[in-house]
Amino acid sequence: MNLDKKQIPKIAPEMFEVVGNQSQETDALAKKQVSFWKEVFYRFSHNKLAIVGSIILIFIALMAAFAPVFSSYNYEESVGLYNSAPSATHWFGTDDLARDIFVRAWEGARISLFIGITAAIIDLIIGVLWGSIAGLAGGRVDNIMMRIADVLTAIPYLLVVIILLVVMEPGLVPMIIALSITGWVNMARIVRSEVLKIKNQEYVLAARTLGANNWHIIKRHLVPNAMGAILVTMTMTIPSAIFTESFLSYLGLGVQAPLASWGTMASEGFKALTSAPWRLLFPAILISVTIFAFNAVGDGLRDALDPKLRK
C-alpha cells in the first residue's frame, strides 16, 4: 500500500496551485429532489402484484362506469333468452328472468364499489377524528373513548343489520349504517396508536414550543404523518365491506331485486348451480378478483410506506 520512490507519479508543478474548496454545499444540491410521496410512488410502482392489482381496479372501475351505459341491454329488462349460456351476444350468459348477466354484473360492481367506498369514507372521517382526539387527549378522555369503541366492536354487525331491518326496508342505507357503526373502530384504533407514537416526537414538541394549539398539531403533524397507515387501512376496509355486502345480500338482507349486486347475483345463481353454473361463476369471480386487487394494492402501499425500507 505504500509507494516506493520510483512509483511516485510525476505531476506538473502548476497542478500544485492552491485553489481552495471550490464547490461548497454541492452535496445537497446535486442530489435529486425527492418528496416523500414520490419515493412511495417509486417503490409502489416496482411492486408487480400491486401494479396488477391497480390495473384490475382501474379496469373494474371503468367497466362499472361505462359498461351499463354503452351496452345495448338494460340490467332489469328481459332479452328473451332464459338461462342461456355465455355466447357472443351475451358474454356472461343470461339468468332465469332472461336478463343479460354482463350488464347486471357491472351494475352490481357499481353497487359493491359504492358500498365499499362509502363505508371506507365514513370510517375514515369518524375513525380519524375519534382516534386522534383520543390519542392526543390521553388519560381519562382516551380511556372512555376507547371503551366506547370496544363496546361497539363487541356487537356483531349481523345483529345490527337485523335490528335495522325491523325499522327500515332492506337496501343500501341500512347496510351502510350497519357497516359503519362498527367499521370505524378499527380505523380509530390505528389512528390512535399512530398518534400516540407521533405526539411525543420532537417535531410535535417543537410545534408546541412555537405556540401551536391541538388543531394545528392534528392538521399539520398528526394527519400527514399518519396518512400512510390511514391509506393502508382504507384500502383494506373497502374489500371487507364489499365482502360483507355480498354476504348480507346472499342472505337476502342486502339490496333487493331488481337492483343487482354481486351478492344477490351469486345468491340467485347458487339456486341454479347445476343447470346454469355461469350465473354463480361470474359474480363469484368478480368478488374474488376485486377483493384480491384491493388487498394487493393495500399490501403494496404498506410496503411502499414502510419507513424501515426508507434510506
Partner: peptide, 11 residues
C-alpha cells in the same frame, strides 16, 4: 432539540 431526524416533520 437533540435529534435532528426526529425534530423535523418528514412531510
Amino acid at each position: 432539540f437533540q435529534d435532528p431526524y426526529a425534530s423535523l416533520n418528514p412531510r
